[in-house]
Amino acid sequence: MSSDSPGKPDFGPEDGDEVSSPDLDTVMELLADRRRRYVLYYLQEEGSADVAELAEQLARWEGERSEKHRQRITTELYHKHLPKMGEQGVIEVGDEVQFVDLTPPFEEYLDLAARQERPL
């Protein structure tokens, strides 16, 4: 423990130190949602997809392929997940959603998550 801040572990960069990798909180926040992970798994493999294709694949992996369920996924992708991932530079959103090469720490966490839960 650091003597100047009780209760805070004494490892990692201190406030104000430069860090070249993505912020760990940002990485964990992006990977915390299953649908965002599923989008990233799919795009990591395919490179790009339109939103309808993503919604169809997510519905298939979630085991519920009804039109109503796909519509809910599509809405959530448009209004929640894709903007959040786009803001962080993980994907590029245009006519199609494009996968962006991830920095090594982010990619390692995504690969670890995929080994644990990757849908077939």
Score class of each variant (00 low, 15 high):
residue 88 Q to T: 01
residue 95 D to P: 09
residue 36 R to D: 04
residue 90 V to F: 08
residue 44 Q to C: 09
residue 20 S to P: 01
residue 74 T to P: 00
residue 70 R to H: 00
residue 7 G to R: 10
residue 85 M to K: 03
residue 39 V to A: 14
residue 7 G to S: 11
residue 115 R to A: 14
residue 91 I to C: 07
residue 98 Q to V: 11
residue 101 D to C: 03
residue 105 P to W: 12
residue 43 L to A: 07
residue 108 E to W: 12
residue 89 G to H: 06
residue 82 L to N: 04
residue 79 H to Q: 10
residue 12 G to C: 01
residue 90 V to Q: 01
residue 86 G to D: 14
residue 47 G to A: 06
residue 107 E to H: 15
residue 28 M to T: 02
residue 100 V to G: 02
residue 51 V to S: 09
residue 62 E to G: 04
residue 3 S to F: 12
residue 52 A to V: 11
residue 71 Q to H: 07
residue 84 K to Q: 13
residue 38 Y to T: 05
residue 50 D to Q: 09
residue 68 K to F: 06
residue 96 E to L: 07
residue 87 E to C: 04
residue 91 I to G: 08
residue 72 R to P: 00
residue 54 L to Y: 05
residue 115 R to K: 15
residue 32 A to W: 02
residue 84 K to V: 03
residue 20 S to N: 07
residue 24 L to M: 09
residue 113 A to D: 12
residue 48 S to Q: 15
residue 3 S to M: 10
residue 59 A to V: 00
residue 56 E to W: 02
residue 17 D to E: 09
residue 78 Y to P: 00
residue 117 E to G: 04
residue 90 V to G: 04
residue 3 S to C: 06
residue 47 G to M: 07
residue 15 D to R: 10
residue 9 P to S: 08
residue 62 E to N: 04
residue 73 I to E: 02
residue 71 Q to D: 11
residue 35 R to D: 13
residue 116 Q to A: 14
residue 56 E to D: 08
residue 83 P to C: 04
residue 72 R to S: 12
residue 99 F to L: 01
residue 9 P to F: 14
residue 24 L to W: 10
residue 37 R to E: 02
residue 80 K to A: 12
residue 74 T to N: 07
residue 120 L to I: 02
residue 14 E to T: 05
residue 58 L to G: 02
residue 56 E to V: 06
residue 46 E to S: 12
residue 102 L to W: 09
residue 11 F to H: 08
residue 22 P to I: 03
residue 95 D to F: 11
residue 21 S to D: 10
residue 53 E to P: 01
residue 104 P to E: 08
residue 50 D to I: 06
residue 69 H to E: 10
residue 66 S to M: 01
residue 102 L to F: 08
residue 90 V to T: 04
residue 11 F to A: 01
residue 87 E to H: 11
residue 120 L to R: 08
residue 49 A to F: 09
residue 115 R to W: 07
residue 116 Q to Y: 12
residue 95 D to I: 07
residue 78 Y to F: 13
residue 5 S to I: 14
residue 115 R to T: 15
residue 6 P to L: 13
residue 114 A to Y: 03
residue 14 E to Q: 08
residue 52 A to R: 14
residue 49 A to P: 10
residue 67 E to D: 11
residue 32 A to R: 07
residue 27 V to I: 10
residue 81 H to G: 06
residue 44 Q to S: 15
residue 5 S to D: 14
residue 33 D to E: 12
residue 76 E to I: 00
residue 36 R to M: 03
residue 62 E to Y: 05
residue 44 Q to G: 15
residue 55 A to C: 05
residue 55 A to R: 03
residue 55 A to Q: 06
residue 46 E to N: 12
residue 32 A to C: 06
residue 108 E to A: 15
residue 42 Y to K: 11
residue 49 A to W: 09
residue 53 E to L: 08
residue 91 I to R: 07
residue 56 E to A: 07
residue 56 E to G: 03
residue 54 L to E: 04
residue 2 S to P: 01
residue 83 P to R: 01
residue 5 S to M: 12
residue 67 E to C: 01
residue 39 V to F: 08
residue 12 G to K: 02
residue 24 L to Q: 10
residue 111 D to W: 10
residue 30 L to K: 05
residue 38 Y to A: 08
residue 30 L to I: 10
residue 116 Q to M: 14
residue 118 R to S: 13
residue 20 S to Q: 05
residue 83 P to L: 04
residue 109 Y to N: 09
residue 28 M to L: 15
